[in-house]
Write a protein that binds this DNA or RNA. Structure first.
Lengths: 259, 259
DNA sequence: TGAATTTTGATTGAATATGATTTATTCTTG
DNA sequence: CAAGAATAAATCATATTCAATCAAAATTCA
């Protein structure tokens, strides 16, 4: 009946999305294959990000996304440091844009205390985290990407185009002196580029590992950036580069104690 | 039946959100596992921040998105019935709009199996639940309302105005013969009214308790509605009313066995 | 056809989940 | 407040489930 791997996995996915959960035992029975094979299938589907493995089977990925949470725990200190510095630039009553990356996500904790903010986001996660009294959250519409919990595409772009005069905070997957700031996926690059283009002022958040490691897709040119926040003083070449372009470079003072 | 940890915990969460509190003894009994296992489950859910432990059981955490979840467990059977009938009207490859109510939310389970759907939503919850292969979800941007987990306002309206030719499914807080369909809050009424106005065809989902109990804000006139789905045959007056207006009335056949 | 590659199923030791038992804690009631 | 009851945590033995390995079977490709 279902003799090829592909067909079998198709059946598994269908079951999984219908019921929310599939068991190894039942699948092995239904498909007339060994449990070992089912496990291999589930493992394969899990590494493709289509299912989440559990004891006894696998389930569809819902809300609390694991890839996001795992990224969230990389470079935690650097992100926290940057996020705190970034939040200090925000006054009460301001309008902001936050991108869907984890560095901007880290800012949410520091922003909840502010008054009368309007925050534009394309990340569902960030939106939910920003829930606080006196805080107005605007989600950009568009194509929903469950694995990233954000919205992208032309509809997001059209929404973005109706907004101006905000302060944009964008992270990046890497920056190069010649190529500007970049992202790994083209959808994000496009929407963030637009966000930067329409902003009153754009601030780049980049931890030290991002320098000289450009990604594939360009977000924006350096000309669009007015400030860069990072976790420690970058190499001299970069300091000079920023000075030349009158980009303000912000990093923690040596004297400030790590809390 | 529920043999895996994951499934069991899901059942526990559902119970918890329905009743506000779950007891160790009852759960052990219902799930046919030892109390030790139930305790481990509750402990696990508590460390994930999903429940709060008490003596004798656990309760839902205060201040979470409780309003949505508690509504979700009202009239469950009626909603399931309606949702199933509604999903049967949807063919593969169709474009839909689903409102942010719980009845439309109930449709998600029946829609995940379909192929090539594009679904427009203004509910984050519904969007997340619609995650399935070959399913394209479009979120309307706009003001984010954390307690309802949806987006409303002019930006949502503007996004809505760029979309046509879809099949709209809308719930309601109540309907009256003279006043049409209504909602309790004005924001929802506005966006759903727009959704109905731009739709190729609009289908009203209303359980029997909604008839003759209009809310404050009008969503749309009866003229905009082409089908009404409910859980049982309404009063004769309503049947006549719909017949007169050539609105197709759909409810479960008496002969169909409850599964 | 025959060799190379992939897929599968069985086996094994390791990891995890479960239930019974015991010990500690918290709640109730007088 | 103290005694008793009820509930929770800790411990351990048992049962499942998992990942790794390897040989057999199926598939592919020349």
């Amino acid at each position: 009946m279902t003799n090829s791997t592909k067909q079998r996995r198709e059946v598994i996915l269908t079951s999984a999305y219908r019921d929310g959960f599939v068991g190894v035992r039942q699948l092995a029975d239904e498909l007339s294959v060994s449990e070992a094979t089912v496990r291999r299938d589930l493992h394969g589907l899990a590494t493709e990000g289509l299912l989440q493995l559990n004891h006894g089977g696998a389930s569809v990925i819902r809300g609390s996304d694991h890839s996001f949470l795992s990224k969230l725990t990389q470079n935690v200190e650097a992100k926290q440091t940057i996020a705190r510095l970034a939040a200090q630039l925000v006054c009460d009553g301001e309008q902001l844009f936050l991108d869907s990356g984890t560095t901007c996500f880290a800012m949410t904790a520091f922003l909840r205390g502010k008054r009368g903010l309007s925050v534009i986001v394309n990340s569902i996660r960030t939106a939910q985290e920003l829930h606080a009294p006196g805080l107005n959250v605007l989600i950009l519409g568009g194509q929903y990407r469950p694995e990233r919990m954000d919205t992208v595409g032309p509809m997001a772009g059209a929404s973005m185009d109706r907004l101006r005069g905000y302060l944009a905070f964008v992270g990046t997957d890497g920056v190069g002196m010649d190529f500007g700031l970049t992202a790994i996926d083209i959808e994000s690059a496009h929407i963030f580029g637009q966000a930067v283009g329409n902003a009153r002022q754009s601030i780049l958040l980049a931890d030290s590992s991002k320098f000289d490691n450009p990604g594939l897709y360009k977000i924006a040119d350096w000309a669009a950036i007015s400030k860069v926040i990072t976790d420690k003083r970058p190499a001299e070449a970069w300091c000079g580069f920023f000075a030349e372009r009158e980009i303000e470079l912000i990093y923690p003072q040596e004297s400030s104690l790590p809390e």
